[in-house]
Design a protein around this nucleic acid. Sequence first.
DNA 1: CAAGAACCCATGGAACTTCGTCGTATTCGG
DNA 2: CCGAATACGACGAAGTTCCATGGGTTCTTG
Lengths: 295, 295
Amino acid sequence: MELRRIRYFLTLARTLNFSQAARELKISQPALSKAIQQLETEFGGRLVRREGRLTHLTRLGERMHASLQEVEDAAQRAERLASRIAKAETACIRIAIMCTIDPGMVGRCLAQFQQDNPALAIELLDFTAATIQEALLNGKVDVAIIGSPVEAVPRLRTYELFQENMVVSCGAQNRLAHRESIPLKMMAEFPYIDRLRCEFREMILSTVDRNDLSLNVVASSEREDWIKSLLAQDHGISIMPASSAISANLKSVTLQDHDLLRSVYLTIPSGREDHPSVQALIKHARTYNWSGAQD
Amino acid sequence: MELRRIRYFLTLARTLNFSQAARELKISQPALSKAIQQLETEFGGRLVRREGRLTHLTRLGERMHASLQEVEDAAQRAERLASRIAKAETACIRIAIMCTIDPGMVGRCLAQFQQDNPALAIELLDFTAATIQEALLNGKVDVAIIGSPVEAVPRLRTYELFQENMVVSCGAQNRLAHRESIPLKMMAEFPYIDRLRCEFREMILSTVDRNDLSLNVVASSEREDWIKSLLAQDHGISIMPASSAISANLKSVTLQDHDLLRSVYLTIPSGREDHPSVQALIKHARTYNWSGAQD
DNA sequence: CAAGAACCCATGGAACTTCGTCGTATTCGG
DNA sequence: CCGAATACGACGAAGTTCCATGGGTTCTTG
């Protein structure tokens, strides 16, 4: 059973005349005859009674007519859907951004990219570290911007974009707020607000550990906005990337004696670089002046 | 867009692996690759991202998937319907019988025919003279048994089956009931019940007219059963085919001086004789011993 | 009424297109 | 370097189309 033959049959069922149907279909009459015969062989019975000018459907033909019309309708819907999508679909890059990355700095980079490529739509999607790898691999997103390289997944290709300092962040009323920098060991004196489930938590904790210190954790949360809210109310202090620490009622203080750095990476499944738009995005992100944008 | 390609795509969408899908479809991998490429050309965009072991659907592919599944489902329903019909459909002859013909005599003929052809189903349909011609021509019925030949329709082929006498019919209490026969002019003395819309009415009226008689019509109806009911209650007398006049509480009386005959014909659109079952029916009906069945 | 025109559909053969397979190249990952 | 996955090119098979033709019916016309 093929759609072409179904269309032939439906036209014939409407005209009840092989020659006229063939003209409408812009094929020759013998071609139509053969196609109908083929359908009849498939269905195991005559669809049409040929009686000179009295051509008409058999009972089998009548009963199949409705069913075949449904097939044709479904096919037409699919075709219309395809052309609608093809028309509407401007090229679109879907970018996963790890939730620990401040969208501001990435946003500036992407804004500039879109100025250079105005036809390209960009879709930003928020992902956690756990789901970002899966989304990359199954095609839900095209590229990802992450705070720590996904380790031991050979299919993913990772480019480092920039590094930024981790800073101590506290509320504007905190007694640290007017200082430029503090030593790491001073951290222990302050109540600490711990951000869970972020890729730099381990880095912070191990650094503290290595210096035989311990943090006085008074609160913890997965959500950056809640952490910031607690900081603003002076519940404690926390350590976070410099770009995240910029917020109303928050002050950043650098660490004197330790260079806590976190890197931001662009990750893409190997093999997907061939898309020209993705290629352009990678090139733009890697040549972008990130340090200039950090202030 | 062709169903074969749609099936290929659906299998590929399930396996997300060209080679495996090709194996399931029992075609080679290059054939599948080409088919999918062709679909992608038709739809104007990639359906599948080929990334080594990470083959997956693009957004276009995902959106088309549901739509194409519907097409495939509709096609499968049509196929199942066809095979169900083909399996269930015992050959069936549809026979239109004009309402003025007593089904008893025709029924005996058909019963014998079915004994000889047990695999053949017969569908009897009741038609009026006006609609029988159309039903024959548009294929609603295969053959018709009628009381008067359809005039001036060259597409119809007519065979005379038998002739039968018209008789006077009256109730059992009527004073004619015990007679064997009456002269035509005696008809005028009795109230007459006129059957409308039947093919022999004109024949009766013209015969009466030619003999300078006139009937005393006291009631008339299109329906044979109502006529018979009126006759049984002795409302009057009527003239009808001998085979119709056989009924409880009715008596038949022949006409002494006139041979009123009506013929019964089998009619078929020319060109439809080629069906073997219809052919057999025609042969059977024409060689059937109708006069022997009249008693 | 018989011959001819017009129409309807089926069949056969030739040209063409499409489809599938095979062998091969390429790319990627282990 | 090998295996897996896909693409490419060539070739044979199958299917599709067209044209020409023929049988059959209906309509027209002399």
